[in-house]
C-alpha cells in the first residue's frame, strides 16, 4: 500500500506542512528572482545546499545562458486631460525611452483589428491596448506583440492592459517579443482600471497625452543554472522520471505561486520518497528550471544537453499552473501510456484527485514531445491564478499549506509509481 502510505505521510504525517514551510523560508529569504540577478544565483546556491542536506543524490547545478534584462525606474504620466500617474510595469525585453521620456498623444484600441482599421491615426502616437480579457492564451498575444504591431504602423510606444481576469489596480508584467524587422519601441502594461479609464476618455473624444519614461535596458547574456537533484534508481538508474517547476520569477512579487509552488512540490516528491526510505527501480530526477519567465531558456538548454538520452526518459512532468487544491493529472502520450497513467491516478482517491485528462503539458517539458516522451502536469483549482500572475500579489499569502500537501502527494505518488514499475511507459 505504498500509495496510501505516501499520501498519509504527506498530508497527515511528519511531512505535513513541510512543502509550504520550505517555500516560505525560501521566498521570505530571497524574494523575487529575475534571471541575471545575483539574488537568483544566491537562491540557487541555497537550494543546492538544502537539497544536499535533505540527503538527495547527485545534487548539482547545470549552467544555462540567460538574457539579462534590467527594468530600471519607470513611469507613465498622464498629462492631459489631467495629471495622473498611470499604474504600470515595463515588459520584459522592452527597450527604454530617452532620458526625457516620450511624450505623445495616445489613441486607445480594443484589438489588433481596430488598430489596423485606424492605422492612419497611429504615426507618432502612443497606442493603448484595452483588449478585453478572454483567456490567458488568447489575451497574452497583446502583451507579446503590441510593440511590434504599433511600431509597424509608426507608433512610438505601446501600453497594454494587464493580462489579468481581475484587478485591484495592479499591473502585471511579462515577456514580450520584438521582430528583427521592426523598430523596437518601449512597451509596458498598465492596470486594467487605467486602461478602461483611458478607453472611456477616448470614447468621449477627449485628447489624451502621456509621458512615458523607462530606463529599461538589456545587458550582455549571463550564466544561471538549472538546479538538479535525484533519488537514484535501484535497477535502472540510467532511466529517468523527471518532475519539475521553475525557480526563477519576475522582479515583482515573490514568485511564490509562479512557480515556487511547482518547484517545491517537485522537491517534495523526491524528499518524501527519501524520507520514507523508498528506492524506485529507476531514477527520480527533480529539475528546478531557470529562465522560464524569459522564454523557457533553462528547460530548452537542458533538453539540448540531454536529448541524446531521450530514450531513457520515461516521463517528464511540470507544475507551472498553480499548486492550489489539486484534482488530478493531465497527461500526453500514447493511448496505452494514458491507460496506465489513468490507473495510477485512480490511486489518488484519498486526496480526492482522481481526475485524469488527456491534454497538454507545460512549456518546460514540451520539448520532449517530439521524441515521444510522455509528459504531464498537475490539475488544480487555479481559477484565480491570473489574478496574481506576474504581479506584486504573487506572495506566500496566495499559497495554502494543506493544498500544497495535497499537490505534493499527487506529484509524489504519480512520479514514484511510474519510476518503480517493472517497465518504462510504452511509446508510439
Amino acid at each position: 500500500d505504498v500509495a496510501n502510505k505516501i499520501m498519509d505521510f504527506v498530508v497527515n504525517g511528519s511531512a505535513k506542512g513541510q512543502t509550504y514551510n520550505r517555500l516560505a523560508l525560501f521566498t521570505d529569504t530571497f524574494g523575487n528572482r529575475l534571471v541575471g540577478t545575483q539574488n537568483l544565483e544566491n537562491s540557487i546556491d541555497f537550494m543546492l545546499d538544502q537539497l544536499k542536506k535533505d540527503g538527495l543524490d547527485n545534487v548539482h547545478g547545470e549552467n544555462v545562458t540567460v538574457p539579462n534584462w534590467v527594468r530600471g525606474n519607470e513611469s507613465a504620466m498622464l498629462l492631459e486631460p489631467r495629471r495622473y500617474n498611470l499604474i504600470m510595469l515595463g515588459l520584459g525585453s522592452s527597450v527604454g525611452t530617452p532620458p526625457e521620456g516620450i511624450t505623445a498623444e495616445a489613441i486607445v484600441v480594443s484589438s489588433f483589428d481596430e488598430l489596423t482599421n485606424r492605422s492612419s491615426e497611429v504615426p507618432g502616437k502612443i497606442v493603448v491596448f484595452n483588449q478585453p480579457w478572454v483567456s490567458y492564451p488568447v489575451s497574452v498575444a497583446y502583451r507579446d506583440f503590441a510593440a511590434v504591431h504599433t511600431a509597424q504602423l509608426g507608433g512610438v510606444a505601446s501600453l497594454v492592459r494587464s493580462i489579468a481576469g481581475f484587478s485591484i489596480h495592479s499591473p502585471h508584467t511579462g515577456w514580450q517579443d520584438y521582430s528583427d524587422k521592426v523598430k523596437k519601441i518601449p512597451t509596458a502594461c498598465i492596470a486594467v482600471e487605467d486602461a478602461e479609464m483611458l478607453a472611456r476618455m477616448a470614447a468621449r473624444g477627449t485628447k489624451i497625452v502621456i509621458q512615458l519614461k523607462m530606463q529599461a535596458k538589456t545587458l550582455p547574456q549571463s550564466i544561471s543554472r538549472n538546479t538538479v537533484a535525484e533519488v537514484a534508481g535501484s535497477v535502472h538508474p540510467e532511466q529517468v522520471v523527471l518532475v519539475s517547476g521553475h525557480l526563477d520569477s519576475w522582479d515583482v512579487g515573490q514568485g511564490a505561486m509562479d512557480d515556487g509552488g511547482g518547484a517545491f512540490i517537485s522537491w517534495q516528491a523526491l524528499s518524501v520518497v527519501r524520507q520514507l526510505g523508498l528506492r524506485p527501480k529507476r531514477t527520480m530526477r527533480m529539475v528546478m528550471w531557470t529562465g522560464e519567465e524569459v522564454g523557457g531558456v533553462g528547460s530548452l538548454q537542458y533538453y539540448q544537453r540531454h536529448k541524446a538520452n531521450a530514450s531513457n526518459y520515461d516521463l517528464v512532468m511540470e507544475s507551472d499552473m498553480g499548486t492550489f487544491t489539486p484534482y488530478g493529472i493531465e497527461m500526453r502520450g500514447s493511448n496505452d501510456t494514458l491507460e496506465i497513467l489513468k490507473s495510477i491516478v485512480e490511486l489518488l482517491g484519498p486526496v480526492n484527485a482522481t481526475t485524469f485528462r488527456k491534454g497538454e503539458d507545460g512549456l518546460d517539458v514540451s520539448y520532449w514531445e517530439k521524441d515521444g516522451v510522455p509528459g504531464g502536469s498537475l490539475l488544480n483549482h487555479n481559477e484565480h491564478y491570473f489574478w496574481f500572475h506576474h504581479s506584486d500579489g504573487d506572495t506566500m499569502s496566495v499559497q495554502d499549506p494543506h493544498s500544497m500537501d495535497l499537490c505534493a502527494a499527487v506529484w509524489t505518488v504519480v512520479s514514484y509509481i511510474v519510476a518503480d514499475l517493472d517497465n518504462m511507459l510504452p511509446r508510439n
Binding site: V2, A310, D336, L347, I417, M424, P426, R427
Partner: peptide, 22 residues
C-alpha cells in the same frame, strides 16, 4: 536515436501491478 518501443507488453498485467501500490 531510436526510442523504446514495447509492442509485446501486457497492459492488463501493468494495471494489476499498479493496483498493488494501493
Amino acid at each position: 536515436k531510436s526510442l523504446l518501443k514495447r509492442p509485446n507488453y501486457d497492459l492488463q498485467k501493468i494495471k494489476e501491478e499498479i493496483a498493488s501500490y494501493k
